[in-house]
Design a protein around this nucleic acid. Sequence first.
RNA 1: GGCCCGUUCGUCUAGGGGUUAGGACGCAAGAUUUUCAUUCUUGAAACACGAGUUCGAUUCUCGUACGGGCUACCA
Length: 507
Amino acid sequence: MDRKVRVRFAPSPTGALHLGGVRTALFNYLFARRHGGDFLLRIEDTDQTRYVPGAEEYIVESLKWCGLTVDEGVGVGGECGPYRQSERKPLYKQYALRLVESGHAYYSFDSAEVLGQKRKECESQGKTFMYNAETRKELKNSLTMSGEEVEALLESGANYVIRFKMPENEEVVLHDIIRGEVRFNTSLLDDKVLFKSDGMPTYHLANIVDDHLMKISHVIRGEEWLPSLPLHVLLYRAFGWEGTMPEFAHLPLILKPVGNGKLSKRDGNKMGFPVFPMEFTDPDTGEKWHGYREDGYFPEAFINMLALLGWNPGTDQEIFTLEELCELFTLDRVNKSGARFNPDKAKWFNHKYLVQKPDSELAELLNGFLVKDGIACEKGKLEKICRLLKERANFVKDIYDSSQYFYKAPQAYEEKGVKKFWKEGTPDLMRELTGVLEGLREFTSPATEEAVKAWAATKEIGFGKVMSPFRLAIIGSADGPHLFDIIEILGKEETLARMRRILEKLQ
RNA sequence: GGCCCGUUCGUCUAGGGGUUAGGACGCAAGAUUUUCAUUCUUGAAACACGAGUUCGAUUCUCGUACGGGCUACCA
């Protein structure tokens, strides 16, 4: 059966999209691109009570930042719209009714109190209450009541829901692209609500109806949906849509770096890594969450890291552009087991991308930090700084932090270094070195290095003994990159000024 | 509790009836270096357990253990 690949990412706007959600979106996107198909964005806002203002915008913006372009859906439009389920509200009832008419569903009038009571009773016996073939016989629904009674109740405006009539003791054999064959017995499943008393469909109904109407060919979603797969398949059958039913692929979950359970938004702030693509402030609590974007991750690195969480190409390659991923991605190389998220590796990915970035681009980013400090620095100089420091940085922020001595002479000298390297004869030595540097016409890294080495060779003292106090004078500490590269960027005048300065301060 | 899914180094994973079980992150050591990093080299580090099938099982089957998910008029 050859049909156009159409996949959807269908989040509900109940908060910020987190890592797992972005990965689901990514896999859908990659699958669509790989097969020349469409990637749709549908907003599943059927639960009015959990709606979080701004969440939808957050989702759209996140996908944009990640470079996952939507072909059809919210914010883009398309032929199967609207793509926001709340705007499709009038549509769902007729489908629910269709199922009632065909005997696949029924009205249920039980109050939340009655069901809650039932649940409690069962719990006290160590059981779980299920609205199913067994219990529905004793409850208030259109299967136990006469047609007139039901009619009267409906007309009186009584609250009702529409439930799926789960068949009894049927073996449902399902196929999942990632997991293979999965079997369920319908007797262990319950009569799920399809249509709520507030006039909205539940996820199950809306999902099936929309996937069908939007001609979705493959449903790629998180593993948490696997238990409701039999319901969904039965719904397709009940509607008579089995022939065009999408194929299903349930993705493994992303687990906490340490401890038990799946990754949750709490983990981020607790363990010091973001779980959200972008910064997010909870409109209710005012709580603020870190984002990959604001923490200095490149979207390419973020996406690359995510792609390898649960998928791999079968080779040793680990760095991929989005385009490469689009070419290589296949569902059959997605893992079955949950993947523990590794924040260290996320940083490593960013480092890889940072090193690859052109210095001009990094300089631009670095300048952003400096502007905030009121520091003006020439672009060419910033590029040199980036070239020198990027190897040892994971983020542009690291370059900013470790490049402070380029913008300002050291205000203090690292105590440990002073103690270790600033000895009795050091001032004389440094005075002499200052003279050597002063006499140089060419102040490039190789030129200064050669001159200082030549001078040091004439002294009884070792090169290292010269370099440590020299380094202290220039940057104030005993670490950092090649000193002659540093002074080339600093320039002769500034270098000499710093030499004189330490001689004044430390004698 | 019930149902479903899963299980290879600490983590992400490759592999697959006979392999020195490979790579990456992290960790450790050595080399290079004026320092710290980088880089390079090296090292430690895994087939959850028990049966069965088989000449042979980490690989296939079944159990057990462990982990995960679901069990709402939430998605």
